[in-house]
Design a protein around this nucleic acid. Sequence first.
DNA 1: CGGGTTTGACCCGCGC
DNA 2: GCGCGGGTCAAACCCG
Length: 208
Amino acid sequence: MKPKKKNQKRQREPRFAFMTKSDIDHLDDGYRWRKYGQKAVKNSPFPRSYYRCTSTACGVKKRVERSSEDPSIVVTTYEGTHIHPCPITPRGSFGMLPPETSTLGGGIGSSIGGGGGGGASHFMSIPQMLHYQQQTQQTIHHHQQQQQPYFRNLTQPMTLIGTSTTNPTFPPSFQQRSFCPSASVNLSRDQGLLQDILPSQMLKDPEE
DNA sequence: CGGGTTTGACCCGCGC
DNA sequence: GCGCGGGTCAAACCCG
């Protein structure tokens, strides 16, 4: 009927060790996301990643992209409604999360460290996140922060902006997954999960 | 082997 | 009507 795909023979680049299943198993906001696409963003060197909630009957999607102005800022846009409060069995305690984890004005700890692979605030149910948001919003004033209710008015997509810089209190474990504030050009593969939202070229060693 | 990522192609809405 | 660009699909690939 319609011409289908031609030869799509591709060669995959070797994946990074840290991008293991365990890493992506429990993603930032407590849900499992499956990446289904990635596109280049106009006027930005950083691609945008598309994720869908892997839970059945869950139509939530999210877009993860990096600010072209400040690569240290990761923008996550959620679309849809989570009908299940906490589908993933917690593997740890969200109490270990630093307040900055929820900087994303939206209230969900998310996206720090890069699209879906970050796992900034792993295990937080929606109510917990909302509560957490209320607590943290009062004292956190990061740039470009948008404060929108999460899972409240779901007819409108919401944008969460997480910054991984300007957070001096970030523990090493998070800094590892975050950008160095002054090293936006040093987006090497060592930054891990960045591959998700960075062009592969940027992840390659320039000397290679 | 199943579930997840990668990535080029396809679809479609929108602006001109 | 056409081109562009954002969003999605799906084959190939990878890993536990």
